[in-house]
Design a protein around this nucleic acid. Structure first.
Lengths: 166, 166
DNA sequence: GGAGAATCTGACGTAAAGGGCAATTTTACG
DNA sequence: CGTAAAATTGCCCTTTACGTCAGATTCTCC
């Protein structure tokens, strides 16, 4: 009967800035285990779960879904040496890293595009003439991707869709 | 009765690499309008919607939710001059840009972190001893965030949670 | 032992952007 | 005209990570 300190669900929730519901959910998914208890008794968590929760948060932050985290933990149970867990985890990390790199590039392009559009919005005086008549004199014409899809004689896009004016 | 060419839903779908369902959904959200028709008739879209769809895809790519795109279009209807639409759009874009910048920074930190963890995984031999005994001699100790939360005498986290072995 | 706080279980709800039927109709083509 | 392809409406389903009750029970503290 070692009187090791144990946590109540609310303590953990506060400690990690999450709700009890989330913790129960993790437990439901098998990411976490509370100590044995009988029906209706409040959960008690050993200190270990603090590490677990921290790890869950880490992995979550690194973009793993809870199901993936569960897999890793499952694997860890079967693999006392830690060898394949480590490999798997490293693989996942590398995967995420590559993905992050892609995202970064996309983000860069995105920002570049946004900047361009902002600039354009500031300079283009005839908003509804774009795409349309304004294209003729548009200095962005070559970069414009709307143009590609639009035939010369098309007019304004915006006002009144199928509307009454004819 | 000008016989202007009009699109069928499937044409548009193919043209934009989306499904007819998606197009109907856009229409349902008021992002798109087809020409008047009676019950059960197939939808016909004027050429204009090609521009619309292109724009929707652009805005979507730029991270706007469909609801936001709808807002913009709504605004455009009320504002023939295009002035406030332009401002609003520019504001949204700037917002997205700032957000993207934040994301980029976060992404950089994230990648840095991931790299570190990968490196660590490759070097740390005692996976389950981390955090735990291995902390004493861990060369990453200072960067470790698990340590912050773990008391000295805590042991392995991974194998067997509340388990049978004692 | 009693008040009040914390927690329990169970079930349903949410958001976003469509996906996937199914039964029926419309349209295009030869 | 007959068929086959394409569309129609309506409605429920999906995913993820919880949120949000509600009513009952348990814990803590005085």
């Amino acid at each position: 009967m070692t009187k090791r300190p144990s946590y109540r669900i609310g303590d953990l929730a506060r400690l990690f800035g999450i709700t009890p519901r989330a913790i129960r959910y993790y437990e439901e998914l098998g990411l976490l285990y509370s100590q044995d208890r009988n029906d209706g008794e409040h959960r008690r968590y050993p200190e270990r779960v603090v590490v677990r929760l921290k790890r869950i948060q880490q992995l979550k932050d690194y973009g793993l879904a809870l199901s993936e985290i569960a897999e890793l933990f499952e694997m860890a149970k079967l693999d006392r040496s830690g060898e394949s867990v480590r490999n798997q985890l490293a693989a996942k990390y590398r995967e995420r890293l590559a993905e992050a790199a892609r995202k970064r590039e996309a983000l860069d392009r995105y920002m570049d595009d946004l900047s361009w559009h902002i600039e354009q919005l500031e300079k283009v005086t005839d908003f509804f003439g774009c795409p349309g008549a304004a294209c003729e004199s548009c200095r962005w014409f070559e970069r414009c991707d709307v143009r590609l899809v639009v035939s010369r004689e098309d007019r304004l896009d915006s006002p009144e869709p199928g509307s009454e004016r004819r």
